[in-house]
């Protein structure tokens, strides 16, 4: 185990964490503002990835694919918000879970209907291919580095929007007191649709970015969705800052655990046993992290008590 390998894995963890943040940010915003738990958020991630793969495949342009992922996911978001989600704000969480579970079924099978069961592939563009040598002799793929930078830029943009712009003020006001801002003349249902579409676009964008590293297939969204739930539980529901810290924690724990735990057990036992024990423990590591956070802070690191 060398320093460069460790550094590379740390960067991978960072990359994973940044993408998880894009997922978790939408979920936590939608919960914070509308009080809605949305299981179909993973489907929007999938919609983004499929839109990007289809458009990039047809036009040959990766950038157009990214634009398509944003537009299609946001559009799908607006569509389900207006048709279904809007009716669920006043319902209890159980009904929200069920209705959005139904949406997952419809989205997944619908996508399988249109695109078939075989995975699509989204190629990284040539201008983001190859590797780059970072300081200390760390060799790292350009595309993954680009994901980290773009993800951080989007995160900064989101923080700026929430903290500094008029729409951000309205979103925060909506979290605190929806009747009051409705009384002040803000079109609350338009605001809700916007927040939902924003979360959808972020999820779709994350799906497209990850789609170029992994294959684009039906059911790709739900494992990420559940990880995003873990992120939110760790960070505290409704807190964007919590989502950011939680996402990086989960991303780093997951990636480094997978890398370090087998190495660690190799010191104690024979290699083949070490790899299987290490891999099993690594697969549980983020959930153990979540359990540990729950023990000390049941409302998450940045959750309001």
């Amino acid at each position: 185990m060398s320093f460069t390998l460790l550094a590379e894995q740390t960067l991978n963890g960072l990359q994973f964490g940044v993408m998880l943040f894009l997922m978790a940010a939408g979920l936590t915003l939608v919960f914070g503002v509308m009080g809605l738990i949305n299981l179909a958020h993973g489907s929007l991630y999938m919609v983004g990835a499929f839109a990007a793969a289809a458009v990039a495949g047809a036009t040959g342009s990766f950038l157009l694919g990214l634009v398509a992922s944003l537009v299609c996911a946001a559009f799908a978001g607006v569509l389900i918000e207006v048709l279904v989600i809007r009716r669920l704000y006043e319902r209890d969480h159980l009904e929200q879970v069920l209705a959005t579970f139904a949406l997952i079924l419809i989205f997944s099978e619908g996508t399988r209907w249109v695109f078939g069961s075989f995975p699509l592939f989204l190629d990284t563009p040539a201008w983001l291919g190859g590797t780059v040598t970072l300081p200390f002799g760390i060799v790292y793929p350009v595309y993954r580095l680009a994901i980290i930078l773009v993800g951080l830029a989007v995160a900064l943009g989101l923080f700026w929007m929430i903290a500094r712009t008029r729409i951000g003020i309205r979103i925060r006001a909506g979290e605190n007191d929806r009747e009051m801002i409705a009384a002040l003349g803000v079109n609350i249902s338009l605001l809700y649709t916007f927040v939902f579409a924003l979360g959808a676009a972020l999820a779709g964008f994350a799906g497209a970015m990850i789609g170029a590293i992994q294959s684009v297939q039906v059911g790709m969204g739900e494992p990420v969705l559940i990880l995003a739930f873990v992120v939110i539980v760790i960070g505290g529901i409704g807190s964007i800052k919590g989502a950011f810290v939680g996402a990086l924690l989960v991303g780093l724990t997951e990636t480094l655990g997978r890398f370090l735990l087998p190495e660690f057990f190799k010191l104690l036992m024979e290699p083949s046993a070490a790899i299987s024990v290490g891999a099993s423990l690594a697969s549980m590591s983020i959930y153990l992290l979540m359990a540990a956070v729950l023990l000390f802070r049941p409302r998450g690191l940045f959750g309001s008590a």
């Binding site: 069920l98 949406l103 419809i106």
Partner: peptide, 15 residues
Amino acid sequence: YWHVYLGAILLGVVL
């Protein structure tokens, strides 16, 4: 693709 129909029915029941 019967899950589409199941999803639609489920949605109907909840809503």
